[in-house]
Design a protein around this nucleic acid. Structure first.
Lengths: 288, 288
DNA sequence: TTGTAAATGGAACGCTTGTCTCATTTTTTA
DNA sequence: TAAAAAATGAGACAAGCGTTCCATTTACAA
């Protein structure tokens, strides 16, 4: 008989995720109009949080009283209690990504303690990842993969601050059983190494301002041999860009004078794995 | 005469950031009670978004009418219009960090196209950064800095997938003019290199599962010589942990079988720069 | 079909809301 | 200090709120 006024001792979903799960679970057994509101609520949670019972009911195409029955069906004692859950959801993702980042950066900039240094590097890395995720040119990306997938040997060229990226690329290519050659300077035999490269090979070259002269010079020589170059660099004015078949502009944030490598790393790894995948599929699995 | 009912042709802040800037700019010239609400609004934006004029006024310790005057002072035609801006703020950060990440990961997992591979690596890197930012043990961090700052020479020990981090540490230490030695295996002289290390030096060792046997063995030898080790590894069961004076547990997310290095990189750079700073200050600039 | 229970629509109600007005207090100006 | 202007507090009020109630419709069992 206590049709609507469900007593509060039955478990009432207090957080949005539980509520969502409860709704999805009972979806089948809900009356038509109630189900209609349930669907609307999950699709437009913000409207539930901010709207009035009347406005929400109108948007969902039901009567306000149905909205209240919906709430009661879920164990709430009225629409208002239900709405609180939807509002709490918005409150709880309080520290949005940007605000967290801003907080990190602020702490880092006011320069208090060693923790601030750590926060600074985390913030720089996050910013870089965010930027590249927005700005990556997908056409260039596909072109680069095509160039590299055709290569017999992939040469990897980077010095100084970019060298860690090159070494990880070489490691990953090796793991994927793709023939590659890391051009290191230890033994001073770079010129000879480069001499073996042919137009059937390809190069991944990485260099950021101030561009290591050796990288630029080696890129020039190797491009004159007709070897296609995929470059990762930091601006269209980069001397590397003029030698490259395809090039990526990656804006890495820096902190305390050291550039984050996270965006470059992510791009490098994606290139590597995509090349591996393309080779396995023999170019068959293409997007239409 | 049109004291309150400011006409709408004067520029009304429509987004939260503009509103915030406007308030901060006029702060000095605002009447006492109005300023009181202004401060409350910037400190408790969520309360403004969800509360009623009465409840907000009570929380801020003013009359509801003052709240309305505050809104009108800013060019809104009432509290309700002002509140819309605060609500929009919550709506707009709709795609919270976690949701964006989840979207990236979902795209990456459904595996459509090469872009998905890229997204996967970006997501893995972001997740790793987020995790380490939450879980970094500050005491360990300070201890590690202390150990490394005292060292005459810092030895950097890492192979295979961890090697890129080691090479960046070595690069950064060099830039900061801190004597360091990267233990590479190229010439097979590692044993001799290690032999020079003394208890007045220190080691940064990095190894993740599956732990490169060479790294573990060299860490064992070097710790038996009494050289303090700062380890970056992935679990408390790591064989590296038992040799270490201080160790960090870094949980790197992986994608397509390749582990992100972003968190490790951030930690490594922070350690390096913090050591550099501590040496410059001679330990004088300590937190109380 | 008929009877019963569930579901629904719509109007009515009491209450709280945002806003306005006006008397009072505080601040500024001369 | 006196006068004028600005700021403030507090109550009044209409509009809109969430909720309830009841008549009607729909679904289902016998």
């Amino acid at each position: 008989m206590s049709l609507g006024g469900a007593t509060m001792d039955e478990r009432v979903p207090r957080d949005f995720e539980t509520l969502r799960a409860t709704i999805l679970e009972r979806r089948q057994s809900l009356p038509k109009r109630i189900a209609q509101i349930a669907a609307y609520a999950l699709d437009n949670p913000d409207d539930i949080a901010f709207g009035t019972a009347a406005s929400i009911a109108a948007s969902a195409g039901v009567q306000p009283s149905t909205l209240i029955r919906f709430a009661q069906q879920l164990g709430f004692d009225g629409f208002t209690s239900l709405q609180l859950v939807f509002r709490e959801r918005l409150r709880e993702r309080n520290s949005s990504y940007d605000e967290r980042l801003a907080a990190l950066r602020a702490k880092a900039e006011e320069g208090a303690g060693h923790r601030a240094i750590f926060d600074g590097f985390v913030a720089a890395a996050s910013t870089s990842l965010n930027d590249i995720s927005r700005t990556l040119n997908e056409d260039h990306f596909e072109d680069a993969i095509a160039v590299l997938a055709k290569a017999e040997t992939i040469y990897v060229l980077a010095k100084r601050r970019s060298y860690p990226v090159a070494s990880y690329i070489a490691y990953a290519l090796g793991k994927l059983k793709i023939r590659n050659q890391l051009i290191e300077s230890a033994a001073g035999l770079n010129a000879e190494m480069i001499g073996f490269a042919s137009p059937r090979d390809a190069v991944i070259a990485i260099s950021f301002s101030p561009y290591a002269p050796a990288t630029i010079e080696e890129a020039r020589v190797i491009s004159e041999q007709g070897v296609p170059i995929v470059a990762i660099t930091d601006s269209s004015f980069s001397p590397l860009a003029q030698f490259a078949r395809v090039w990526f502009e990656v804006a890495e944030a820096d902190f305390a004078g050291f550039r984050s490598l996270s965006a470059t790393m992510a791009l490098a790894m994606a290139l590597t794995v995509a090349v591996g995948e393309k080779r396995r599929d023999g170019g068959r699995k293409r997007k239409a």
